[in-house]
């Protein structure tokens, strides 16, 4: 199923506005290219991270609500590519981005800051960072288990690939993804800048 989704993706159907992406946290390399979303059903918040062993451990530890019926945890989200054709995103959106470390890979993260924002970083080389023009700051919700801007710095907007708009599968968690920033994260002093 994952391969099928991937094939659709690479067939050049970006003319259609939507692409399905499988985000199963598997050790398989192909799947890792699409990285993971772990949907916490209890809090309706999306924990994002890199698809590695870490996440598998995490997945097991979150078993009661991540994997309720014991099936392989495999969430499918709808990526809207039409809405990002002008590279317009807002803070709190979940976006898929071509990884700056590996061009073959796409990562799914949450936008924390847009260009011009001041960000308090978590483990980056500078404590505070101003996001340069044409860049944004993306983070996974699962701090410490996520390869995000805290390790590679702000990301160029040109790498933007799509915006996750709906959770499609499993059906009992079918919902629209609303932009929401995690608590205590976000640009500093936005009120004063606006």
């Amino acid at each position: 199923m994952c391969e099928l989704c991937f094939a659709t993706n690479s067939c050049g159907l970006s003319l259609q506005c939507c692409v399905f992406v499988n985000v199963s946290p598997d050790v398989n390399d192909t799947v890792e290219t699409l990285s993971t979303l772990q949907f916490g059903s209890s809090i309706r918040q999306v924990a994002l991270g890199k698809a590695t062993k870490n996440i598998r451990v995490e997945g097991a530890s979150m078993q009661p609500f991540l994997n309720p019926d014991g099936r392989s945890d495999c969430d499918v989200v709808l990526l809207n590519r039409w809405s990002v054709r002008n590279y317009q995103v807002q803070r709190g959106d979940i976006v898929s981005v071509l990884s700056p470390k590996n061009p073959q890979q796409k990562i799914i993260k949450r936008v924390i800051g847009l260009e011009g924002d001041f960000i308090r970083t978590l483990g980056y080389k500078n404590r505070y960072v101003r996001v340069p023009d044409g860049h944004f700051w993306i983070e996974g919700d699962h701090h410490g288990h996520s390869l995000d801007s805290n390790s590679f710095g702000p990301v160029s907007v040109g790498l933007l690939h799509g915006r996750a708009s709906h959770i499609i599968w499993p059906p009992n968690r079918w919902q629209q993804i609303k932009p929401s920033l995690p608590p205590n994260r976000g640009p500093l002093d936005t009120e004063e800048e606006d």
Partner: peptide, 19 residues
Amino acid sequence: LCKIQKGDIVIAKSPFDPN
């Protein structure tokens, strides 16, 4: 196919203005 080599001329998106 990731076959870009040294010396090739490429067209890329500007990192500061994606348009």
